[in-house]
């Protein structure tokens, strides 16, 4: 039986008009599904459109075209008031730039409680306090931190405030945009384990955007590889790591730094230049390798890469 996806993105385009003659096609027709309780990792180089994808889905932008279905509702078009409220309560985003999204004049408690207050989720101030303190502890901070301001925290601590703010709403979908990139390894491990625990406990679904493939490997069930606004390959985590087909995927995998100084000092990563190889993503079509694994390629490219 076919499971119903929690999120279904179909042919999503997000363009930005820079000048009258110049438009950035940040996201150029991508499709993917995320099932309830799973983690979908979105990887790709800087500027490939990862954040834009996340921001379009949570509707910080008006998509240029395409459809976004969330929990059975179409949210890619103009939103009704109810749908907007539904979206704000059930979908949360953790941002890449922690400082840019935490109001510097608000105390941590107010930052975290903001959503609870707007949507009148708690009955009393005491309930808010309890929820805030519980979530602070969950992300590895303590209730003493609730009265401080964001600038009084280290980068990693700030990111945990952003995570707490998202999770306190108990959302169905969390879009984590480089949520752990600013954290050090040991805290990354804690936060990733924490996100996994919460997922197990509450069935939360994640769209996990990151450039650190080693981390993505740990957390994701499936992975989509984004390049210049196109998903060039997608598959289960094993399929992507064990059997990558697209040269871009291969170059990404080879660029993962290994913590072995003697090897790493001299190792060179594979390079991939789409123009040199004459690849035009708009000409490619989907080639399936399995139910879950497929690549964007022309027939010739597919034959060459898969050969």
């Amino acid at each position: 039986m076919e499971r119903t996806p929690l999120l279904e993105v179909t042919d999503l385009k997000q363009y930005f008009k820079i000048t009258r003659t110049y438009t950035t096609k940040a996201v150029d027709g991508i499709s993917f599904k995320i099932y309830p309780g799973e983690t979908y990792g979105l990887v790709g180089e800087s500027g490939s459109g990862k954040s834009t994808t996340g921001r379009s889905i949570i509707r910080l932008y008006d998509p240029t075209s395409g459809s976004i279905k969330f929990d059975g509702k179409e949210i890619g078009k103009k939103l009704s008031k109810e749908d907007k409220a539904y979206l704000r309560m059930n979908m949360q985003m953790i941002f890449q730039d922690p400082m840019a999204c935490l109001n510097p004049r608000m105390k941590v408690k107010e930052i975290i409680a903001e959503g609870l207050r707007i949507h009148k989720i708690c009955k009393s101030e005491q309930e808010i306090d309890e929820k805030v303190n519980a979530i602070l502890e969950k992300v590895g901070l303590s209730k003493e931190h609730a009265t401080r301001f964001p600038h009084q925290f280290s980068g990693g601590q700030r990111q945990r405030i952003g995570i707490a703010r998202a999770l306190v709403m108990n959302p169905k979908l969390v879009i984590a945009d480089e949520a752990i990139s600013a954290l050090d390894v040991s805290i990354q491990a804690q936060v990733v384990n924490l996100m996994k625990d919460i997922q197990q406990e509450l069935g939360t679904t994640y769209l996990f955007i990151a450039h650190d493939l080693a981390m993505v490997k740990y957390i994701s069930d499936r992975i989509g590889v984004l390049h210049l606004g196109h998903i060039v390959e997608t598959g289960t985590t094993d399929e992507i790591f064990q059997d990558p087909i697209h040269p871009y995927t291969k170059s990404l995998l080879s660029a993962i730094p290994h913590p072995n100084p003697k090897v790493e000092k001299t190792r060179k990563a594979l390079t991939y230049d789409k123009n040199k190889e004459g690849v035009d993503y708009t000409k490619g079509k989907i080639h399936h390798l399995s139910d879950t694994h497929y690549v964007l390629a022309t027939d010739e490219e597919f034959a060459k890469w898969h050969g």
Partner: peptide, 28 residues
């Protein structure tokens, strides 16, 4: 030791990362 252990290692297949238990002391 803890820091080096908590590094994700793409070559292994464990599904849980090692995390140093607890958190930094309160410097207050």
């Amino acid at each position: 030791w803890g820091l080096l252990s908590s590094m994700p290692d793409v070559d292994t297949d464990s599904h849980r990362l090692f995390a140093i238990p607890g958190s930094c002391p309160n410097l207050l």
